[in-house]
Amino acid sequence: CSTTPDSQPTDTDSAHWSVSGKVGIWANGERETANFDWQNCAQRYRIRLSGPLGMGAAIIEGNDQEVSLQRGGEATVYADTPEELLAALGWIMPVSALRYWLHGDPDPRAPSRQLTSSNNYPSLEQHGWLVEYAAGDLLPTKVNMTHHSARLKWLLRDWQTFETCPLS
């Protein structure tokens, strides 16, 4: 798989954190809303996505080598990268970079451009995405991301950090 430039670990990498909320997805003419719960320990992550009413869960679990997707009643799907996995579902979600973007940071492993925007919240361009922060103080609570015609709207409700990794 592709070699990534050596990344300087940021606190996003080392800390154990979780965030839950809602994501609106506009991609190839489809419109979806999902509730999500994201748990992260360094390179390991577990993302639970459920329908707008909290049911019909899918679980994405992974680390830097492999990622898997579990959905009720279907065989688990594996892939090398989360992007490959989600592309199979027709979803466009830059998962690897997301864990930095949701924190308000660029992905340290790739070049990025940071822009100032009118609503005095920063925004950045990276991996072909425009990431605009629309609300939040220490950590973002609203983030809009666009990539060509795809759009992701994140509402981040419950940021938590942990001493020990919450992932069993």
């Binding site: 809602k22 419109r31 809303t33 019909g56 509402l155």
Partner: peptide, 18 residues
């Protein structure tokens, strides 16, 4: 979805997520 101020309208069919 009041959070996203988004309304989806479609013909009713009982097979829904409720």
């Amino acid at each position: 979805d009041p959070d996203f101020e988004e309304l989806v309208t479609e013909p009713f069919d009982r097979v829904s997520q409720t």
